[in-house]
Computed example of a mutant assay.
Amino acid sequence: MTSLTRRGFLAVGGVALAACTSRTPEDAAERRQALNAEIEAARQQLLGIRGAPELIAAAQGVLIIPNVRQVGFFASGAYGEGALFIGPAIVEYYSLSLASVGFTFGAAAYNQALFFMTSQALQDFRLADGWQLGAGVQVVGGEDGVSAGVTTTRINRPIQELVFGQRGLIADASFAGAKYNRIVR
């Protein structure tokens, strides 16, 4: 019988943890395919909104994040994953993480599109750390919703935001911080 040293224990534990958290290439391909299907469905819905095709044509790039899910009770959080299009091609994948504090009650899901109207705004977004500070109001009931707000992104850069496809029930009047992170899919 051999004694188990700390180093041996950590090695066995590390291998066990890696085995539990590793994903096969097939899992990654399936997740990317499912995400691409969600992005395409949101893009088709976006094309049906009056004025959106003109924004897409004028933009240097469009970030589409489908199915952003938000839940809150005074404070709230939201998360979603999507893709950055330059022309008709997906060039990068991004995640959106949002936290807010204020008057928030309920849960909702929505799609978000960011239109980068200048090449400088697109370059700044791709190189920046992604934080956005904002204040806004959102009311969603069923599939109809209204959102309004001013963010530092809108004030400082020529970036337009469109929130569409809202569903759920949430009332939100809060200060929020959002972070967009590049992810590998």
Rank of each mutant, 00 (worst) to 15 (best):
M1E: 02
T5S: 12
T5K: 01
R6I: 03
A16D: 02
A18R: 01
C20L: 14
T24H: 01
E26P: 04
E30K: 12
A34G: 13
A37N: 06
A37D: 14
A37P: 03
I39L: 09
I39E: 02
R43I: 07
R43F: 10
E54V: 01
L55V: 06
L55N: 11
I56H: 08
I56R: 06
I56K: 06
A57N: 15
G61E: 13
I64K: 01
I64A: 07
Q70M: 12
Q70F: 10
V71L: 10
F74G: 04
A75V: 15
G82F: 05
P88I: 06
A89Y: 14
Y94S: 04
S95T: 15
S100W: 07
G102D: 12
F105C: 02
A107L: 13
A109R: 13
Y110D: 09
N111V: 10
A113P: 06
T118G: 09
S119L: 00
Q123A: 15
R126A: 08
D129F: 07
D129R: 14
D129C: 04
L133A: 12
G134A: 14
G134N: 10
G134R: 15
G141Q: 08
G141T: 09
V146W: 12
G149M: 02
G149C: 02
G165T: 01
Q166A: 11
I170V: 11
A171I: 08
N181P: 00
V184D: 13
R185M: 12
